[in-house]
Structure formats: C-alpha cells, structure tokens
C-alpha cells in the first residue's frame, strides 16, 4: 500500500502550491469578519445614517453563528470546487499521472490520497475559521455553547467533504479541470434545487448546513438521513473516480 506515500506528497503539494494558504485565509476571513460585522454593524449604520435614528435589535451569538454557517455554505462550496477540480484532471492534462501510475500505485489509492489531502486542507481551514469565529463571538457578542459549536463545524466540514469528493470524481472523468469544475458546480446546484423539494430535503447533504444553522439558533434539530447519505455519496464518488481511472486511457 502506497497510500501514505501518496498522501504525504499530496499534502506537501497543498502547501507548496498555496492551496492550504488560500483555503485557510478564506475561512479565517469569514471566521473573523462575521462576529466583527455583527458587533459593529449598529455603529456603522448609525454613523452612515447622518443623525436619523435606526432601530436595530442587539445581535446575539446565535445570529453571528447562523450567518457564519450561511456564508461558508456558499463561499466554502465554491472554494472546494475550485481547489479540487484540478486534482486529477490537471495531472492527466500535464502527464504527471503517467509517471506516478507507472510505479506500483493502485488507481484506488491514488484517488483516496488525493481526497485525503484535500479533506485535511479543508479541515485545517474550517478549524482556523471556527477558532476565529468562536473567539470573537465570545469576546464581542457573548458566550457560545462549545458542544453545539463543535457539532456545527463538524457538519460544515462533512458537507465540504461531500463537495470535494463530487468534484474529485469529475476531475477523474475529464482532462480539463474547467469541465470538471463546471460539472461539479452544476451537480451541487441540482442537489441544492432538489433539497428545496420538502419530502426530499431531509435526505440531501445540504440539510447538514440546515442542521448546523438550527444548532446555532435553537441548539437542536437533526438530519441523520442526510448524514448517512452524505457518507454514501463520499464513498460512491471515490469508487467512481477509481473506476474511471481504471477504464479511461490515461
């Protein structure tokens, strides 16, 4: 098994090609800016209102967390697609995949190592964003339930792993990373549309973000079917990438 050697190389690549830095910077920005915005928004509005009194209710930590989950649900998905779309496609386009796969490297371990490195990159990003959000929300807006906050971030991270694995699967299909990225976005968009159909909503991965939001607001709620289906999608996407690699000409 060479999966660890491949993972080590992939992880190093995430650092050397600045992907880790970009992902960490984006998540950190949202983690920092959301509680800051909620703290200072009334003052900003008051200053720009030129003396006209504007009544804004005081923001709570839940408001900041809900907005944080919301923002990550949109921008984070886009970042996930952008970072993962070239994972295999670019290797095929450049020919580096030929050099690696002419060594004793299984197609499956090649795909798994790619996904693992991307997941670690996003886990670091989510962790940094979460730390910043937790610290500033606590300092500026009030205390936050640590357990619920942890659960929210784990759900966010899992949703990103779904997005990464779908993008990785398309990246195995195409030599063009743009085609892989476009199809991944279309798939995620279709999944988003399907999740607006009430009977199907609890089963779609985006319900994880809704679960996160309700944890932030009410401290409750659940979407266990979505959790199971998300796991199934991740496994199916990696298996599909493996199959595609073994069937398509490199």
């Amino acid at each position: 098994m060479n999966v660890f050697v491949l993972f080590k190389k992939e992880a190093k690549e995430q650092v050397k090609t600045y992907r880790l830095l970009i992902v960490a910077a984006v998540f950190l920005l949202f983690g920092l800016s959301t509680p800051l915005l909620f703290k200072f928004l009334p003052e900003i509005l008051e200053m720009s209102g030129e003396g006209i009194p504007i009544e804004i209710p005081a923001f709570t930590p839940s408001d900041a967390l809900k907005s944080y989950v919301n923002s990550l649900g949109q921008i984070g998905v886009l970042v996930a697609v952008l970072v993962a779309m070239g994972a295999i496609a670019q290797e095929r386009e450049r020919g580096t995949i030929i050099m690696t796969l002419s060594k004793p490297v299984g197609f499956g371990e090649f795909a798994v190592a790619k996904l693992a490195a991307l997941v670690v990159t996003f886990l670091i990003g989510v962790a940094l964003g979460a730390l910043a959000c937790f610290y500033y929300t606590t300092v500026l807006l009030g205390s936050v339930d640590v357990q619920a906050f942890l659960a929210i971030n784990l759900l966010i991270a899992l949703y990103f792993v779904v997005c990464l694995s779908i993008t990785l699967m398309y990246s195995a299909f195409f030599k063009s990373q743009l085609a892989a990225g476009a199809l991944a976005l279309v798939t995620l968009l279709v999944m988003g549309i399907v999740s607006s159909i009430p009977p199907l909503a609890p089963y779609m991965p985006s319900a994880l973000m809704g679960w996160g939001q309700s944890l932030a607001v009410e401290g409750g709620g659940s979407a266990w079917p979505a959790l199971i289906i998300s796991g199934a999608i991740i496994v199916a996407a990696v298996l599909a990438a493996w199959q595609v690699l073994s069937r398509k000409e490199l």
Partner: peptide, 23 residues
C-alpha cells in the same frame, strides 16, 4: 493494467516526461 508486480520489475520513461514542478 495497473499490476504492481509488473511495475516493480520495470522502469518506464514516457516520450514527454512530466514532473511536479514544485519538487
């Protein structure tokens, strides 16, 4: 295809070898 036993016994150089440029 993708036989690790085979690939342990051979060395292969493609026509246009491509490397990870950051390495």
């Amino acid at each position: 295809l993708n036989s690790s036993v085979l690939q342990r016994r051979l060395g292969y150089l493609p026509e246009d070898p491509a490397f990870y440029n950051w390495m």
